[in-house]
Design a protein around this nucleic acid. Sequence first.
DNA 1: GCGACAG
DNA 2: ATCTTGTCGC
Length: 273
Amino acid sequence: MSGRAAKPPPAATLRRWEREQAQLKANVVEEDTEEWQKDSSFAGLERVGGVDLSYIKGDDTSACASLVVLSYPALEVLYEDCRMVAVSAPYVAGFLAFREVPFLVEAVQRLQQEEPKLKPQVLLVDGNGLLHPRGFGVACHLGVLTDLPCIGVAKNLLQVDGLVRNELHREQIRSLQREGDTFPLIGTSGRVLGMVLRSYNNSSKPLYISVGHRVCLETAVRLVKSCCRYRIPEPIRQADIRSREYIRTQLCSPLEVISSEPESRKEEAELDD
DNA sequence: GCGACAG
DNA sequence: ATCTTGTCGC
């Protein structure tokens, strides 16, 4: 139930991965394809999914992959799937999908088979979509493989196409005064790669939203906004909470789990700044 | 050589 | 991603 450290991937593997990204990228749709996406209040949208992987401290190969489905607009959990997985690929910036996506695809397929009526109409993904060195981040990757609308939600800026988190960038972030405020990320190429969003009044740290698949950037930002109770949009936040909790109960003996219950402390805190 | 590097 | 409690503030 444990594993060793992750080895750096050979250059040949990286080249193979790059080719695969280039091939799959041809299938990405950067526009709205669903009726509910065009509605000002997302009428017709009933289920939003969130995915995440949580890892064990010293173990690079054991993780918990989770997929949750929330009702919309109430944001109540309708479905939860947490499962320990054996991660084989190491983390390499720009190739996150090759580490995490296989387990997420499995989770989606499992849901499709066991609870087809709960299949999400859109997926919020930890990480980037088009905001990526080769324009094909994990949100695009998962979107193409599952043919589901996907939105990339990153907690940190991936410096790409001339984008840098310098003083100017920090100043732009400071200019986001209230939740809902945004500014676009425009690369040297002139393309709009994503949007920086202040998602929560109590946190000055923004989110980096980008198109994954079958959704346009404006719709993506609008939907993420409408899913935020705290800084992290609820579907991803629930997937994150549940996957780490799953790991915690896997790691500790039953007695320890009971005695270290987090009950009174965190739960509903998430106040940054 | 130096810095950058989603999760 | 993960290591980590209390604490200051609304």
